[in-house]
């Protein structure tokens, strides 16, 4: 942390950047909040730990007219997945790489508030403490110890890129060799089920959607100035929370981020009704991996899977 603060102070002092987007302490236990640091004084507010859930790079592309201020050069603190988003923006010509300064931080995974809440059966969590591989969760009348990994986001458990693949400064020691279990186990397991079972699950899950678009708005890869959902001439899909409308919204969104999703899990955390959003996104990711041997945001010199063509690509989906 001290190293991080020191580095950010330095680049702000040298006027290397106009602002640094990082995390500050949030108002709830297990929460960090995005902060925009412009002065040396505010640098002290920066934190980095397991609560730093948000993928802050979403602020680089989202709605250029958010606030009236425009920053020319932006510093941003990145975990592995966040850094991949910057790579994505670069290959998709959304930002100029030289206009952002990336400060990589070593990530051991971040907490998923929803999983924590499930661990303690929905009771309100007021405090926590990390004890090596365990987490001690405290509430009004309870204290429970759980394995730390049970509290981490699902994407973190199969993350192959905990160290930022692209960075200008790296704080601390990269994790380097990560031993990753089968990243697609959940998709394969789901695929084992019968079509009826899968359909029933998808229907039940997506019937809960309230169409608040938190998943879309928090998603670093969803940066269209006008989303297809918002267009009304023609109106592509219904806006009701009916399950058919909701499923179509999520299906199309997933197709739009095919080969572009960095599996940061921001959508999952943002969802106020806890939808299983990765059941779709991870499946699309797997397809892209198998067909095009492409992983979004890992190589700044590689063209996006959906924007390039190779003769030896599998084409069975067309040719049957």
């Amino acid at each position: 942390m001290q190293q991080l603060v020191k580095k950010v102070k330095e680049i702000i002092k040298n006027k290397e950047v106009d602002v640094v987007i990082g995390w500050g302490r949030g108002s709830l236990p297990f929460s960090a909040t995005p902060i925009f640091v412009e002065t040396e004084k505010d640098v002290e507010k920066l934190i980095f730990d397991e609560t730093c859930r948000n993928n802050l790079t979403t602020y680089l592309t989202k709605d250029k007219r958010r606030i009236s201020k425009e920053y020319k050069k932006i510093g941003i603190i990145v975990k592995g997945c966040d850094s991949r988003s910057v790579v994505l923006y670069t290959v998709e010509n959304q930002i100029k790489r030289e206009n952002v300064v990336l400060i990589g931080v070593p990530c051991n995974g971040v907490f998923e508030k929803k999983k924590l809440s499930q661990l303690v059966e929905g009771k309100e969590i007021l405090d926590f403490q990390i004890d090596v591989d365990n987490i001690i969760i405290k509430g009004r009348n309870f204290e429970q110890t759980h394995p730390l990994k049970d509290a981490l986001c699902d994407p973190c458990l199969t993350c192959q890129y905990p160290d930022a693949p692209e960075y200008d400064y790296f704080i601390g020691t990269p994790r380097k060799d990560v031993n990753v279990p089968d990243a697609y186990k959940m998709i394969n397991d789901f695929g084992e089920k019968s079509a009826e079972e899968r359909w029933a699950y998808i229907q039940e899950e997506y019937s809960k959607c309230i169409r608040c678009y938190a998943c879309r708005n928090i998603c670093p890869s969803c940066y269209c100035p006008e989303c297809f959902v918002d267009q009304n001439d023609p109106q592509w899909i219904g806006k009701t929370p009916e399950v058919t409308d909701s499923i179509i919204f999520h299906l199309i969104r997933n197709l739009h981020v095919a080969g572009r999703c960095v599996d940061c899990g921001a959508c999952v955390s943002a969802c106020p009704v806890d939808l299983d959003l990765r059941i779709m996104s991870k499946k699309v990711e797997k397809e892209i991996k198998e067909r095009f041997d492409y992983t979004a945001g890992t190589d700044i010199n590689e063209k996006p899977a959906m924007a390039s063509y190779c003769e030896n690509e599998k084409q069975d989906f067309i040719m049957g």
């Binding site: 909040t33 995005p34 201020k69 169409r211 608040c212 938190a214 928090i218």
Partner: peptide
């Protein structure tokens, strides 16, 4: 501007 800088304009709060 200070308050709204981090808002991503989803509708979760209002819903």
């Amino acid at each position: 501007e200070e308050i709204s800088a981090k808002c991503i304009n989803c509708g979760a709060c209002t819903f």
